[in-house]
């Protein structure tokens, strides 16, 4: 019995092509084990991912604090308010700015370190350096955020004290209190915290490149730069697409660091989208003052989500187009 079921399933793909005459129900029955196996994942994500997403669309049409029963239907008013709110657009731009600055620096630095550590001559020392660069990744973001407020503090913080002792600055720098510096300080800490992850990705990709290619290049008299430009970088491109994508997704989720380091301040200077949504949804911090507006926060989340989705689709479309163009060029060149 079990044997037959399993073979049936295994041939499901072939059967689908061969006998389209089989009814949908028959095919679904044949695949019943497949559905059963998907069930746990589907139930969990239905409860904690899809339901909340759909509900937030629904809530975005209401004026609602989120904690009381009285909800007033107000149609698209929340959306109108969101798109005319200066703070929303500031946070919106800031989120993208954060990503556009942090990502290239993080990925380039990580690649640079990975290339240095991947050098055959560095075999002995590499693991120790790799460990140190990776160490911040295993720490807890929120706790690092809190510790960094001490390390960067203008009142006896070690960094300011060191810089002053060395005579590099005359007065302490208020890294997190100065509205013009705060966002870049957080970006810096974010890069420091997460750099190790893309570094490991790059190292993994570099190890796939066969050493014999470099040896052949050396015989041909190619120097380090030419090897980098003509062997390493071109061969990394397929990996680069995946690495950029994974890093982009994680760079959008900076809530723990920002919330613990600045809470979005000073004067909203570091308020990225996630913090804006949190602030409008809950009014303010734990037990703080401010009016929680869940309906409004939902609308803001929906607008932001749709924008990111559009951007991601655009990117996917761009990558595909580029590939088509390139392969067309390659075939015409031959």
């Amino acid at each position: 019995m079990a044997v037959r079921q399993a073979t049936e399933l295994q041939n499901a793909a072939a059967e689908r092509r061969l006998s389209s005459s089989k009814s949908l129900w028959q095919r679904m029955w044949a695949a019943r084990w497949c559905y059963l196996f998907m069930l746990p994942a589907l139930i969990l994500s239905a409860l904690f991912t899809f339901y909340p997403i759909v509900m937030s669309w629904y809530y975005s049409l209401f004026q609602w604090s989120g904690f009381t029963a009285d909800k007033t239907f107000i149609g698209l008013s929340n959306y109108l308010e969101v798109i005319s709110d200066k703070y929303f657009w500031d946070a919106f731009v800031r989120s993208f700015l954060f990503m556009l600055v942090s990502m290239p620096i993080k990925l380039t630095l990580a690649l640079l370190i990975a290339i240095v550590l991947n050098d055959q001559a560095m075999r002995v020392m590499s693991p120790a350096f790799r460990t140190m660069f990776f160490l911040p990744v295993v720490t807890t973001a929120a706790i690092i955020g809190i510790m960094m407020t001490f390390v960067l503090s203008p009142f006896n913080g070690p960094i300011n004290k060191t810089l002053m002792t060395l005579g590099m600055i005359s007065g302490p720098i208020d890294f997190l209190g100065n509205p013009r510096l705060a966002l870049w300080t957080v970006v810096g800490v974010e890069i420091w915290k997460w750099l190790g992850q893309p570094m490991i990705y790059w190292l993994a990709a570099l190890q796939v490149i066969p050493q014999s290619l470099y040896e052949a290049a050396k015989v041909d008299g190619a120097n380090w730069w030419r090897q980098l430009l003509h062997i390493t970088l071109p061969l990394l491109i397929p990996f680069a697409i995946v690495i950029v994508l994974i890093t982009a997704v994680s760079t959008l989720r900076v809530f723990p660091l920002v919330q613990t380091m600045t809470g979005g301040g000073p004067f909203f200077a570091t308020e990225v989208m996630e913090v804006y949504i949190y602030r409008t949804a809950f009014g303010s911090d734990m037990g703080g003052i401010g009016v929680p507006r869940l309906g409004y926060a939902s609308a803001a989340g929906v607008v932001f989500g749709v924008s990111i989705m559009a951007l991601a689709l655009l990117q996917a479309w761009g990558v595909r187009n580029m590939r088509d163009v390139r392969s067309a060029m390659e075939t015409s060149g031959e």
Partner: peptide, 28 residues
């Protein structure tokens, strides 16, 4: 395996990748 609805399920999951976290926290 191939079975009816497979593509839809993959599409459903992939669509969630870029959703911002946070604003769905209340329904959750």
């Amino acid at each position: 395996y191939a079975f009816p609805g497979k593509r839809a399920i993959i599409a459903l999951f992939v669509a969630t990748v870029f959703l911002p976290t946070g604003y769905t926290i209340i329904p959750l």
